[in-house]
Every structure is written in C-alpha cells, then in structure tokens.
C-alpha cells in the first residue's frame, strides 16, 4: 500500500515536473540542450550556411546550439528527425523551400510527415533560380536559347537537377511558358550538371544564381536569366526572365522549421533571434563571402509563403506523376 502510494506520488511528481518543464515561462531555460538539424551533408553549401547561421544564433541567444547533420534523401532524413522531435522549442532545423514541400507531396518518397508537421519559424535567405550556359555558347540571351530549342525540339540538353525537384519543375515550367521541348538530364548533385556543362555534354543548366556565380566570375559560364522579379544584387548586370518576356519565378530559400506543437513563445524567441542575426554586420559579411543573398521573413509571412508553396505545387505533383 505504502509502495503503491509512493509510486503514484512520484509518477505524479514526475509528470508535473516534466509538464512544467515544457510550459515553463522564460524560454529558453538554463541547461537545456539545443540542437539544429541540418539535412545537407557536412561541408556542402547548405551545411556551411546553417553552421554560419548557428554560430551567429549562439551569439544572439547566448546559448550553445549543436549542429547535427542528418544527411540524405534530399533533406528528407532531417525533416523526419525534426518532425519526430519533442515540440519544446529546443530542436529546430533546416527548411528548404520548395524542396521540403516536394518531399511530402511526392508519394514515392513515402514521407511520414506533412505540411502541418512543422511550424516555419523564419526565412533567412533566398537564392533565385537561374539558367546558365557556357561562356562560349552561341546563346547570348534567353531568346537565342528558346529559338534554338524551337528549331531543334527535344535536342537541346538541359541539366534539370534530380527528378521531382525544384530545378526539374523549373525546366517543365520553361517548356510550358515558351512552348518548347528540351531533353532533361537529371543529376544527383549541384556540381555534376555544372561539370557536364563545362565539359560540353550539356547545353544549359537550371540551378540557382549562387551555384553559378563563381564560374561566371572566372569567365566560364554565362547566366541567361534570373528567375526573379528583380535583378540579383549579387549579379546586377544579368537580366531577369521577366525582363525577357517570361513570367517565371523560382528559387531556393532556406529557413528554420520547428516541430508542430511547439509553444508560441519558443517560435517567437527564435524568430526574433534570427531577425537580429540577419541584421548583424558579421552575418551579412559572411553571407556576402558565401555569395548568398539574405532574405529575412518573419513567422507570419514565412507561414503564408509555406502555405502558398504547398498550394502551388500540389497540382503539379499530382499531374507530373
């Protein structure tokens, strides 16, 4: 009897203790372990970006944050880990749009999470999509390229990322907008299509501005068009697709996600921290060196974009397959 009471009492105490630890005011609590789940492999562009962000977040929040790489299946492993972690605000991670949306909307990926498994915290950067050719290519602008594609249907080879990724859908959108068909070549990394382009096996590649800038600077590549409504501050001399008559917009954005069910105050805490980071001189300097454009978006705006992205992609994914 006595034992039973003790057990009940102690489990009650334990339950209260654990529930108070979740609800405790004054997030973040002392001594809690904070982790940042990164879906990009160690040393890749995405990983370096998140490590820079984490370093600055540590400064702003005064907390230690541990980076954990869950590399694989196009950030799916990381998203899985975030979605199944405790929603207490101490675990957050990489949210790349629209990559993430495409994972849970693609039935073959068998994702065990959906859009409502996450709360988007804030957007940190956005790199507009771009189409590039070799510097010695006869295509000087988008019009040359489209004319060539019209003259040789299905003959122009274009690197279109991995299957069912943003780059793939960019190429599909271009085909539709310009009324052409091209030969889509799928690769398994960003470096691979660029290598094939330089080596002459491909005629063009669809990626993001940041993926090409280095090679544009070294005089090997030319960007035909930036998929944005305004020119990129990192390459102001390159015209947008809109300027060339194609209303095509795309890009890769990176931000933070936190598991659904996380208390509001935790989301607000990290959103404010990210905002401060994006305004700090050191972060700006680091991002400029990496060739990545900062684009901050707060929780509300980011959530709106998150929803819009899902609504926009859903019909494409279901018709594509």
């Amino acid at each position: 009897m006595k034992l039973k009471t003790t057990v009940i009492l102690s489990s009650l105490a334990l339950a209260m203790w654990s529930s108070t630890s979740v609800l405790a005011a004054g997030f973040p609590e002392e001594g809690k372990r904070i982790t940042m789940v990164v879906g990009s492999g160690v040393g890749t562009g995405g990983d370096i970006f998140y490590r820079l962000l984490t370093k600055e977040l540590e400064k702003v929040s005064g907390k230690n944050i541990e980076v954990i790489n869950k590399d694989g299946a196009g950030t799916q492993f990381a998203l899985q880990a975030i979605s199944t972690s405790k929603p207490d605000g101490y675990t957050m991670g990489q949210l790349a749009l629209p990559t993430a949306t495409m994972i849970w909307l693609d039935p073959t990926k068998q994702a065990q999470f959906k859009g409502d498994s996450f709360i988007p915290v804030s957007m940190v950067m956005s790199d507009p999509g771009a189409t590039a050719v070799r510097a010695d290519s006869p295509y000087k602008n988008m019009k040359d390229f489209i004319d060539a594609a019209k003259a040789n249907p299905g003959k122009i080879k274009i690197g279109a990322g991995a299957r069912n990724t943003r780059q793939h859908f960019d190429v599909l959108a271009l085909e539709k907008a310009a009324g052409v068909t091209v030969q889509k070549v799928h690769a398994d990394s960003t470096a691979q299509p660029v290598t094939l382009l330089i080596g002459g096996q491909l005629d063009a590649v669809a990626e993001s501005v940041g993926d090409f800038l280095n090679m544009v600077k070294s005089g090997q590549l030319r960007i035909l068009g930036v998929w944005d409504d305004k020119r990129s501050p990192l390459a102001p001399e390159i015209p947008t697709m809109e300027e060339q008559g194609y209303k095509l917009y795309s890009g890769a954005s990176r931000g933070l996600a936190i598991p659904a069910g996380t208390p509001k105050e935790a989301v607000e805490f990290w959103d404010n921290a990210v905002k401060k980071v994006t305004e700090s001189a050191e972060f700006k300097d680091g991002m400029a060196k990496l060739g990545l454009p900062i684009k901050y978006m707060n929780s509300q705006d980011y959530a709106k974009l998150y929803k819009e992205t899902e609504d926009r992609i859903k019909p494409i994914m279901s018709s594509g397959n």
């Binding site: 890749t44 280095n214 070294s218 990496l290």
Partner: peptide, 25 residues
C-alpha cells in the same frame, strides 16, 4: 576549373570564395 569533385573539395572551394577568389582558368 573551379569544379569540386567531392564534399571535401567543395569546402576548399568555399574557402576560396570566402576570400573573394574564384578558382578557375
């Protein structure tokens, strides 16, 4: 050419870029 063949080499490329250098011809 500025082409990274593996993640480790991509980090080196990053080190070049962080210093405003563009490896290539």
């Amino acid at each position: 050419l500025g082409i990274p063949g593996s993640p480790s080499i991509a980090i080196l490329l990053g080190a070049f870029m962080m210093n405003g250098l563009a490896p290539g011809p």
